[in-house]
Amino acid sequence: MYDLAIIGGGPAALSGAVYAGRKRLDTVLIAKEIGGQLLLTSGIENYLGFESITGAELADKFANQMAQYDIDEIIGEKVVELFKQDYFFKIRTEGDQWSEARAVILASGKRSRTLNVPGERELTGRGVAYCATCDAPLFAGRKVAVIGGGNSAFEAVIDLLPIATEIFLIDIAPHWFADQILIDRIEESPKVKSFQLHRVVEILGERRVSEIVIEPIEGGEIKQFNVQGVFVEIGLVPNSEFVEGLVKMNQYQEIIVDCHARTNVPGLFAAGDVTDVPEKQVIISAGEGAKAALSAYRYLIRQKGQV
């Protein structure tokens, strides 16, 4: 049995692992991939110590630092179940690997939110995309739709501008939430056609996306456009399903933690984007991960006398 299991592979998890390693806790890190959302970030200019670095490079540096310590890793596996049994936790991954630990840090981060409209799931990977950085180059000479009004939607449009022939930018809000510097960059382009206060009704296509259907949110004429790609950039949802019913969450399904990174379950800590800590930033997640590891260490020391 491990002292500590850390679930996740982003900045909070890796920072937690470094701190746990330094305390010589017998630790396992379980993650779908090392890097988390860092892998989807092209440039980072606000992480202290690095004036400008790509997300992937920073992830590499974090992973290399973690490798200085003796941490077991289960990589490529998503955690699907976690429960407390007596004084310890049991954790099961998608591939049915079980781990046991006296304390756990939940640092499973967030993932792309889906539209939940007909056609979306069936056409994912057939034109419906959630990684603009990855998939934008595949839409050269094609018409596409980008859904959303925040920074990630505008960054997707900017990635697509030199590639796609026409871009429909669709959002339900009355105004953009993106930084003005990004808005300025695309509003001058004749390729971009914006539809604010519109929702996606359906995505159509047989083997691949062929059309998108949208409607004004306050009713009115339905519009249908020929597109070959739909980039969904409408924010993120926490990866917290596997602890539903076990820990307290807020209305956004974020895990509620106190200022010591403790959840309401003794021995269960949480850090990073999966928690209700405001401001989702690499530097904040890294700090929270460190804090969670130190809190877990203190918990384990106290618990030792009782077991």
């Binding site: 057939r126 995309a129 180059p137 691949r208 996306v209 070959q228």
Partner: peptide, 19 residues
């Protein structure tokens, strides 16, 4: 490379990578 061989990307319906 899907971008260097677009005809193959097209043949195999590559709309998402890695495929």
């Amino acid at each position: 490379s899907a971008t260097e061989f677009p005809h193959l990307a097209n043949k195999y319906d590559v709309f998402s990578v890695p495929k």
